[in-house]
Structures are given as C-alpha cells and as structure tokens.
Design a binder for these strands. Sequence first.
DNA 1: AAATGATGAGAAAACGTTTTCTCACGTTGA
DNA 2: TCAACGTGAGAAAACGTTTTCTCATCATTT
Lengths: 336, 336
Amino acid sequence: MVARSSRVTIHDVAKAAGVSVSTVSKALNDTGRMASETREKIKSIAADVGFRPNALARSLLFNRSFTVGLLTNDTYGRFTLPLMSGISEALVDHGVSVFLCAIEDDPALAKVHVDAMLDKQVDGIIATGKRVDRSLPVDLAGLPVPVVYAFTEGVPGSVILTADDSDGARLAVERLRKVGRKRIVHVTGPDSFVSAVERADAFRQAVGRDALVMHGAWTEAWGHEAVAMLWGEDKETPDGIFCGNDQIARGVVDALRERGVRVPEDVSIIGFDNWEIFADQTRPALTTVDMNLKELGRTAGLTILDLAEGRAVEAGLRKLPCKLVVRQSCGGDREI
Amino acid sequence: MVARSSRVTIHDVAKAAGVSVSTVSKALNDTGRMASETREKIKSIAADVGFRPNALARSLLFNRSFTVGLLTNDTYGRFTLPLMSGISEALVDHGVSVFLCAIEDDPALAKVHVDAMLDKQVDGIIATGKRVDRSLPVDLAGLPVPVVYAFTEGVPGSVILTADDSDGARLAVERLRKVGRKRIVHVTGPDSFVSAVERADAFRQAVGRDALVMHGAWTEAWGHEAVAMLWGEDKETPDGIFCGNDQIARGVVDALRERGVRVPEDVSIIGFDNWEIFADQTRPALTTVDMNLKELGRTAGLTILDLAEGRAVEAGLRKLPCKLVVRQSCGGDREI
DNA sequence: AAATGATGAGAAAACGTTTTCTCACGTTGA
DNA sequence: TCAACGTGAGAAAACGTTTTCTCATCATTT
C-alpha cells in the first residue's frame, strides 16, 4: 500500500559508499568518531547522488517540524502580506517554512485549519487579522504549541505584538510642527477602532487638549467630506492634516486640489499605513506613517521560534515603533 | 536528545483501552476484523483522550505529506492572494495545507525555499507571479514533484493555467456595444506585456481593424494622459473606453470628471482586474473585467492534487474564462 | 468427539532519520 | 606477551503510524 519514493535516501548513500546508514548519518552531521577520509568520501558520494535528508523523518524524531502556521482573517492581505514577508524572511534562515491559512471569519473553517496544522505538528502559530482590537473567530488558548498574536487581539497572558499607534501619531504631529504648521487637525476612522482612538489620544496630547479630531469612515469619500466640512465653515482653515489612513489622505488631497488649495504649499498632509499603491500614486505622493509591519513580522517569527525552542519570552503586549516615510505631501522634504 | 512530546499518541489510546496499537489503528480507520463493540469502545476512548494521529508519521509511511508549496514573486500580493485563497479553499477539504513562499526575484532565495519544500516532501508546487509572460527566477523542471504554473510562464510540456485575456477583452467590448457605444478605444499597459497585446488583439478583432489602441504605463497617470490626448485633438471623442487595468480606468474617470465629461452618461468606462480597492472607490464605481483568479487557484489546487495522486493531467496552456463585474461606470446596469 | 472454519486481536515490519551502545581491531605500555 | 586502551564502524532502538501476517479461541459441521 505504501507508495515507493523515487527520492534518494540515506540507505542509497550507504549502499553507494559501502558503509552502514549510521556511519553515513554521522559523517554528514559531523558527529561520532570516524576516519576523516571516510567522512569526506561519504560526503562527496552523498553530494554526487544528490542526497537530502527527509525532513519528515527528522521531524518525527526530534518532535520539531520546522513549520509554523500563520492564521489570518485579513482576506485582502493589506496587513497580512507584509507581516508574512517579515516572518518568512526571519525564519527561512532557520529552515522553517510557513503555512498560510486564510480563514474568512468562519469559526468552522478556522478550526479545520488549526486542526490540520496541529496534526502536521507545527512548531507554533502566529495569529493575525485586520484589526488590532478584534480577535480571530477561534480559540487559540490551551493549544499544545506556542501562539503569538501579531496585529490582532490575544488572550490575556499571551504574547501580543502590535504597532505603536501613539508613536505613529506623535511622529506625524512632530513632522507637521517641524515644517511650521500651527493649525493641525486629525481626520481619521471610526472611534469604534481602538487604533483610531489611540492615535487620536496621542494626537490630542501632542497638539493640545482642544485639538480637532474628526472621526468617519476609512475611505477616500470621508476625506472629501472632511475637507468640505473644514473649508465650508467660515472658520480658520487648517494648515496641516494628519489622516488616519492613506485612503482618507488621498481623498483629502484630491478634495483640496479640486478647491484650488495647494498641497503641500498651503496645507501639509500626512497619511497612515504607507500603502504604496495609494501613497505613491497620490499627487503629490503621500508622506505617511509606516507601521513597520515587516519588522513586526520578523519579530513575531523570531518570537515563535524562541518559544518553540523553549526559551522564555515575556508575555504581554509589546508595541513596536512606527516610522515616517517622507514623500511630497507634507513639504519640507528638502530642507530637513 | 529526542524531546518528549506532550501529545497523546496511539500508544496512549491503546494503553487506555487495554488493547494493542494495531487494534486501535484498525478500529479508528474502520479496517480489519474486530468486534463492533471493541471498535466503538476504542473510538470513544480515543475521542475522550483527544487523540489525533500525527500527520508526520502518516506522511512518512504513505510518502504523501498533504502539503503543497505556493511559490510567488508577486510580493504585493495583488494576484497571489486571490489565487492562494482559491487553492486553499479547494485543498482544505482534502486535508492539504499550503506553504506560501515569497521569493522576491532572488534566485538564491528561491532555491532555498524550493529545497526547503522538497525536504519537507511537498506533494507538489504551484508557481505564480506578477505577469503571465515572465517565469520565476528558478528552474522548476525535473523536480521530483509535480509542478503547476498558474498565472506565470511555465516550461514547455508543463501544465500552465492562466486567465483568458482575449475573452476578457471580448466581454468588455460586447458590453460597451450593448449599451450603445460606437466609438470605442482601448487604453492599456505597455505592449511589452503579452497580456496587453492579447487583449489589444482581441479588442481589434471585436471593434475593427483600425480600432484605436493606446499603450502606456499601468498607472492612473497614464489614464489622465490618455484622456488629455483623446480630448485634446479636435477629432471626434470616444464614447466608450476599455482600460487595461483598474488604475488606468480610475485615472480616466477622474480626468473625465475634471473635464466635465459625465461617466457613464457621456462616456462608458470598463476596467480590468476588479481590484476592489480601486473599482469600488472610483466615482462612479468601475464596471470591470474579473480574471476569476480565485477560480484559477481552485483549479490549480485540484490539478496539483490530481498529479500528486497519479491521475493523468493534460499538459499545455489552459485559459480560464473571465467574467464582467457590473458597477456604474459603464451605464446600462439597470436596463440589462 | 474430532476436524474445519470463522472471528478477533496482537506481533512485527515498514517509512527515513538520529543516537546510543556494542564490538572488533590495532596500538601502546609494562 | 599480555593487558589496557583508543579508534573506527556497525547494530539496534526510537519517533508514531499503518498493514500484513500469524495465532488463539470458539462455534459449527461431520
């Protein structure tokens, strides 16, 4: 019943070299006692026949599969892909591969995927999602493998990695100040998102208690609308706008252009996310806050590795700093 | 040296049931001869202790790992994610998990990933990329596992799946005709992309030999530029524009609005890709051609499964049909 | 009552590794 | 010359399954 493998095994190498499999194993792993000429001969023969050890067999023996699972409900991949990229980059050097499981807010599907991963003896699971304050529709507590939550809500006592929204907001305000802006407002997403609230709080702290924060949708349309409101009243108009994401920022920039307001000469705009497809294509290109998701992924990967290999990791929420990506929409990109 | 697993094995079940492991195995797999009460008792005990067979051990035995690798150099994920979603959806029912490997046009990294997957005994590899007419920077020929190329160039004699660009173009023209458009032009990407050329050819075939095709970049800016050219001369302006992707379409729509040309009343616009983030956010929302990438992924997944299980699959290029997603930019969305 | 057959369940081998243990052989020292 | 020791290499067990083979036991038939 068992299918025959066409792959070359350690037995083939042993036969070709006229030694036992144990000797081959020791030769290739540089362990055991052995005449160095024997070792070299075996190594060369192994290379000749193209031997590569079957990872499944090693996994079975070591109880380490050198795989981790990435569980996400961010079907669009806006946040998952950069994270994935960082995880993969950090782990490939350690011979670890990543199972990507897209569960579309479907608890049953999530369970199927988690079970499949556990059956395949993943060394750990990284959970991620599309918002920081919502958990995946599956309970990952009490699993026989370590779990790291990245950019999604985790159970108490777990390791949770996320971007520092407050830091991002501070970075933006700091920059707007540096280019001489005085009347700064914040146009952002719904206040039902903790990210939006955290950024807004940090924004107020940086700008002043009565700073104007406008909550709306995460859309271009809301950017247009906000500009209409701000420029519609006969109050003093802002000279700096910090937007909650790049889509809103694009809406704001477009709306200002339509009104004949120049960006960045008259008003400086800063976005959030550094979603290149928006930030780069907006005219002028957006200066925006980057959440360093790839770095977050790298950290998540190394953390799950630490846990898998039994090293202690401090539990709790850990916030990683953001960075400002300077393009043209804020101005001052030359003189600073 | 070998770490102790905390997981419950078939031996634990055997001990708990007071029978041998072979009996447990046969009981759970509904094979062998056995008193049905024994079988049921074992099943219930196995469920009680939460036994799940170690997939690694089974893989070793069956020489089937129930994993496949998805290799991509589309770091942004525009095409990879829908594909991945389809693959995963098709395979999860068969207990197959997917390794996602992002190789960023780096041959060395690609080789590392491919080797890691082969070591882990993947049942097959699906290769994908960001263009149909470029191959990945790694040679997948002669691998000991089946390979399917999806949305990327494959070696001759291999199985290659791709979207039918001609079909997409025909669909668009057909629709423009149906809403009464007579003067239709095609604004698309560089003619160094075979996709662009195939669509352009099909467009010409549908509209007429001397139909106007404008090649440029795949950007919004090119959409603006093309409109400036079309409306700048004192020739008759088009009443229908079929765009090579949604970004160009968005540029065209925006440029027309700025000129006071109404979409879809005066001009009908159709995009390509159905990239929701563009198609949905454009005002009016874009009617656009969808390449059915998820379906493509599903097909790729089932194909690699066929190959892995030794079923014959016809080699060669297979083009899957597109579909038109109707929103507002083309008009006629109510009466048809 | 003895031979046959059916039934139930366990022993062992296999998958491809790694590691521990054992052993044969040759060299050294007294 | 013989014991002690070092060296090189193989045998066997282990990881967790599945499957084939073997063997009791019991019921049925002659």
